Computed example of a mutant assay.
Amino acid sequence: MSTNCTNITTSSPSGLEVIVFPILYIVLCLFICGGNMLTIVAVCKTEVLGTIPNMFVVSLAIADLMIGGLVIPM
């Protein structure tokens, strides 16, 4: 026997969710992008940090920067 699904109700987001979540996402994006930019600048400007293992760190920072700048805002 099948059930009747006409009584399904959907709830709209509350006012708090509409305000808080975008602010949290903006703060998260700023921290991600800012921290990764500091990592990239520190490795590029300091000769001592220009080692091969640190280039892997820069590569990860660039990938994380792209995630923080492109994917999270969507």
Results as ranks from 00 to 15, higher is better:
Asn4Thr: 03
Val58Gly: 05
Phe21His: 06
Met37Thr: 15
Thr6Val: 08
Gly68Thr: 02
Thr46Glu: 09
Cys44Val: 08
Thr6Phe: 11
Ile67Asp: 02
Val58Phe: 05
Cys5Lys: 14
Ser12Gln: 07
Thr3Leu: 15
Val20Tyr: 15
Glu17Ile: 03
Thr39Gly: 15
Ala61Lys: 00
Asn4Leu: 05
Leu28Thr: 14
Thr10Val: 02
Val48Lys: 07
Leu38Gly: 14
Met55Gln: 03
Ile72Gln: 01
Leu16Gly: 10
Pro53Lys: 02
Ser12Glu: 14
Gly68Asn: 02
Val18Ile: 06
Pro73His: 09
Leu16His: 08
Met66Trp: 04
Ile72His: 02
Cys29Gln: 12
Val18Asp: 14
Val18Asn: 15
Ile40Glu: 01
Leu60Ala: 12
Ile67Arg: 00
Tyr25Ala: 07
Ile62Tyr: 00
Leu49Phe: 06
Val27Met: 13
Leu24Ser: 09
Leu30Ala: 14
Val58Ser: 11
Thr6Cys: 10
Phe56Val: 02
Gly69Asp: 00
Ile52Met: 12
Val27His: 06
Met74Ile: 07
Glu17Tyr: 10
Gly68Lys: 03
Gly34Arg: 13
Gly35Gln: 08
Met1Pro: 11
Gly15Ile: 01
Ser12Asp: 14
Glu47Gly: 14
Ala42Gly: 15
Ile23His: 11
Asn4Tyr: 06
Ala42Glu: 15
Gly35His: 06
Ile52Pro: 12
Ile40Asn: 03
Gly50Arg: 04
Thr3Glu: 14
Phe56Ala: 03
Gly68Ile: 00
Lys45His: 09
Lys45Tyr: 04
Met1Thr: 06
Ser11Arg: 04
Glu47Tyr: 07
Gly50Glu: 03
Glu17Ser: 08
Ile19Gly: 12
Leu30Ile: 14
Ile52Trp: 15
Thr3Met: 13
Val71Cys: 04
Leu70Thr: 03
Ile8Ala: 07
Asn36Trp: 08
Asn4Met: 09
Asp64Phe: 09
Ile32Asp: 03
Gly50Ala: 03
Pro53Asn: 00
Thr3Asp: 10
Ser11His: 10
Ala42Tyr: 07
Ser14Gln: 05
Asn54Ile: 01
Lys45Trp: 04
Ser2Tyr: 14
Leu24Met: 10
Ile23Gln: 14
Thr39Leu: 12
Gly35Ile: 13
Asn54Trp: 08
Pro22Leu: 07
